[in-house]
Nucleic acid binder design. Structure first.
Lengths: 202, 202
DNA sequence: TCTTAATTTAATCATTTGATTAAAATATTT
DNA sequence: AAATATTTTAATCAAATGATTAAATTAAGA
């Protein structure tokens, strides 16, 4: 019996997954053809169904990865007992921007796909994790009058929305690729300052 | 020759358009089947190709409508010489939230579709309109150190991102439908205050 | 009421697309 | 090198899907 060639198998399997990541995140599930993925990977179509049972199975695997990527940035920072609220904000903002600069299609991909499949997130325990987090506790102390969700949505919006809306502003010719990178670099400093100022309001 | 029955024609055509609006904005172009639209409209499939030449033509019509809807809220307010900067922010935020409460799927729809078709916005002269706006002029006076785009992206992010991310937060069970409506009502007041505070930073 | 034009439908086509299969090629073990 | 298992491919299938067509139905005007 021939041993499974771990190297080559991993390489081929990884080629498919990498191609799937690229095509799925760029075009979304419905607009993606399994043939697109095969071509992107430089492989024949049948291989996708040999390695993965179906388009859907392949998609689910990529989706899990991407959701992990999207939430992983934040989850452990939220419960760091050693940092102040302001430090947490700085770290979350900075980490998110770094990660999203490497994965600019990630937010729109996840946000688009979840709209058709709300159940996808159920398994994740991120909701509970957020509600019970040290971060939320600190927020309530600092500004008892403000619902934590308002603050979280605003913070994430300031970080994520630029990536989601980038194609629009580029089409409107008010934003180039270079100036986008520069803008996001500035936002690492600006957003934490702004969030501090917002917490002082009223 | 029978006169065209304006009433019935308009009614049927409008039924198709209304169904197309609903299905396209909910599921996106690629995931939408022309049969879905026909069924939603309570009509036979062939009628879609009788009234509109193709799925794509029908989509383009809806898309133009939706882009108009998305930008129309803002464009005239930007150049109102009679209002202060703070008043403009209040009005834009308030109008956007009202409009989006009626069309919650609108932002994700437009943002998703433009990623595959950047050319779609080229025709719109919104970019120039923004750059030359009274609003931008007022921003530069108030805070010469801050790029107007930073401010605009933040303001729109605070308003639009909640709608885009609503399915995520609902899945995470940190947000119900009712509390979302309440949250957006509060945001009409909060966001302008926050934007004022942000302009004072540094 | 009869004729004519507009409207609607059922049936069908051609293409796309996800998936399978059987054979060929490649690699591994002995 | 021979035998065996794994990997890859070309060819093909069945279902889904956008679109068309020709016939049936409905409405309007004379």
């Amino acid at each position: 019996m021939a041993k499974i060639k771990e190297n080559k198998q991993a390489s081929t399997e990884e080629k498919i997954k990498e191609a799937a990541r690229k095509v799925f995140t760029q075009k979304g599930y419905a607009a993606t053809r399994t043939r697109d993925i095969a071509e992107e990977a430089g492989l024949n179509l049948a291989l996708l169904n040999y390695y993965f049972r179906s388009k859907e199975k392949l998609f689910e695997m990529i989706m899990k990865e991407k959701m992990q990527q999207l939430f992983g940035v934040m989850t452990h920072l939220l419960n760091d007992k050693a940092t102040t609220l302001d430090q947490k904000v700085e770290q979350i903002v900075s980490n998110y921007i770094d990660m999203l600069m490497q994965n600019p299609d990630l937010p729109l991909f996840v946000l688009s796909e979840i709209r058709n499949n709300t159940g996808m997130f159920r398994q994740l325990q991120v909701g509970k994790l957020i509600r019970n987090s040290h971060f939320v506790k600190q927020l309530k102390e600092r500004q008892p009058g403000l619902q934590p969700l308002h603050f979280i949505v605003s913070m994430l919006g300031m970080v994520v929305f630029p990536f989601v809306s980038k194609p629009v502003f580029q089409s409107l010719e008010v934003l180039s690729e270079d100036s986008f990178a520069e803008m996001m670099k500035q936002r690492k400093v600006l957003v934490p300052k702004w969030m501090k100022a917002m917490l002082k309001v009223k």
